[in-house]
Every structure is written in C-alpha cells, then in structure tokens.
Design a protein around this nucleic acid. Structure first.
Length: 268
DNA sequence: CTGTTCAAC
DNA sequence: GTTGAACAG
C-alpha cells in the first residue's frame, strides 16, 4: 500500500477512536449520575416528597427536585433540614454549574447574566453548610430561580432564616419550595427562564410531637409585612401549582392539615 | 444572611 | 478561568 493510504487509515482510526472514547466517557458519566441519584434517594426522606407534574425528579445528595423544562427551573426543591445540618462553617461561594443530571438540559447560568435578577437559591446554601460538598451542590442551575434582589435579600431571606430557626427549635423540618410556574410570566435569557410571580414554601414537622404543617405564598416583591401575613393553606398552594404535596400521608391527616391555614403551632 | 461586580494573576 | 476584595441591603 502507498504511504498516503496508510496515513488515511491511521487518521480515520484516530477519529473513530476519539469518538468511541468520548462515547464511553459520556456513558460512564451518565451511569455515575444514575448511581449517585440512587444513593442520594436513600438519603432523602422520600416519604415526604411531592408529586412531579413534569415527570422529571432528580435526587442529589442534599436535596431532590422536580425540573420543569418549559420554565427552565425546578417546580419544587425538597429537602430535610435536620437540626444537625445547621452549621456555622464558611465555604467559599463557587460558580454555578449546569446540572448534568437534568436529562432535558438544565438552564445555563448565562441566562441570569445581566438579567437584572439574582440567581436565587431554592435550597439555600446556608441550609447545607455541614459539608463543602453539600454546600457546593446547591450551586446547580436546577436549584435556582430568577429573583428580584430586594425580594431575595429581603422578605424571602427572612423566611429562610425563620425555617432555620424552626429546624433548631423543632429538631428538624422537611422543606418544599419553589416558584409558582403558572400564569403569564416574564422570561430571561436565551433559554427563556420564567420569572415566577409568586414563590411558595411548604413545611412539615413530624419530629416534635404531633405532625404540623405550614405554607407560605409570597408575591415576588419585597415586603415589610410580618411573615405570618403570608401564611396560606397547603391546599391553596396545590391549587396554584398542581403539585400534590404529601401524597404518602394518611389521607385523613393529609386532608386536615392541608386545609388549615392556622399557624398557632409555629412560633414566630 | 442574600447577592453582584471588578481588578489582577 | 480563578481568586480575592469591595460593595449593598
């Protein structure tokens, strides 16, 4: 054979080799994500997970989420905030990363760049400070929603601090949170990330005596009102979002707790 | 705590 | 790209 023919054969072999190598890498990565998901699921209190209206639930080690592809964000993020999770350790704030576990492709952080909106955490970084890994895991684009800075640093931040206060006081709480992804919404970035008009937070405590719930629904703007002014029933959040929050709970208890908008069992 | 921006390496 | 400091509520 001519030397040129050999060059051609070797060149083709190299190209094929690279493709096969990359294919194997991607497969291995996917397998790893699935495995991580399974391990993570074992860590989460699956009993309290809501239903997914989007059919795409993802389990990370520190939280689970249901991703809405049309809105390029999670419809809910859920996690258990144990008393033992509360930590004062400081970790350096990392860059946000695209969540590779989202099969339909999670939003890029670039959508938020110069959008005028914060990359607002759903599972707050401050709730996962017990390890660096747990902290950094909250910096995935599947865990953020566009939030007005005054809102995020204001009333929403106040609510997040109250959740930590309750986790301390009641020996842990289970948290479900997200933006209300319905109605007319503004979008940001080339991928069209929806800007929710409301954010909600639903809590359940089954660690300190009788099971209790509380839900908050907040317009996406800062407020100086007291937190309890934003308390609604879980049923109201369900009606707005289409999410069924605690389907595994015994129906009688679920119906009773979710219909109530009383906050007498929660100390402010 | 919640974040963003900008300069230097 | 990474890192660190300054800034704002």
């Amino acid at each position: 054979m001519k030397r040129r023919t050999w060059f051609t054969i070797i060149a083709i072999a190299i190209i094929i080799g690279v493709y096969v190598y990359e294919y194997v890498l991607v497969e291995a990565e996917q397998a790893e994500i699935v495995l991580e998901g399974k391990e993570a699921k074992a860590n989460t209190n699956a009993f309290f997970l809501p239903t997914s209206t989007t059919n795409q639930i993802i389990h990370h080690n520190g939280y689970s989420l249901s991703y809405s592809e049309p809105h390029e964000q999670a419809e809910w993020v859920a996690y258990e905030l144990k008393k033992s999770h509360l930590s004062n350790t400081n970790h350096k704030r990392p860059y946000f990363e695209i969540d590779k576990a989202v099969k339909t492709g999670a939003a890029s952080w670039r959508n938020y760049k110069n959008s005028g909106y914060d990359r607002g955490h759903l599972c707050p970084a401050a709730d996962r400070r017990y390890t660096k890994a747990a902290h950094d895991e909250t910096f995935l684009t599947s865990n953020i929603s566009p939030q007005d800075h005054q809102f995020n640093a204001g009333i929403w931040n106040t609510l997040e601090q109250k959740v930590r206060y309750w986790a301390r006081k009641y020996n842990g709480v289970f948290v479900v949170t997200g933006g209300v992804l319905s109605g007319r919404m503004k979008t940001i970035g080339s991928e069209g990330v929806s800007v929710p008009n409301y954010f909600y937070k639903v809590l359940i405590d089954s660690n300190s005596g009788k099971t209790k719930m509380i839900a908050f629904l907040m317009p996406h703007k800062d407020s100086s009102k007291p937190l309890y002014e934003f308390v609604v029933s879980v049923d109201e959040v369900e009606a707005l979002t289409g999410i069924d929050f605690f389907p595994e709970l015994a129906d009688e208890l679920e119906n009773k707790l979710e219909a109530s908008r009383s906050y007498k069992d929660w100390s402010f």
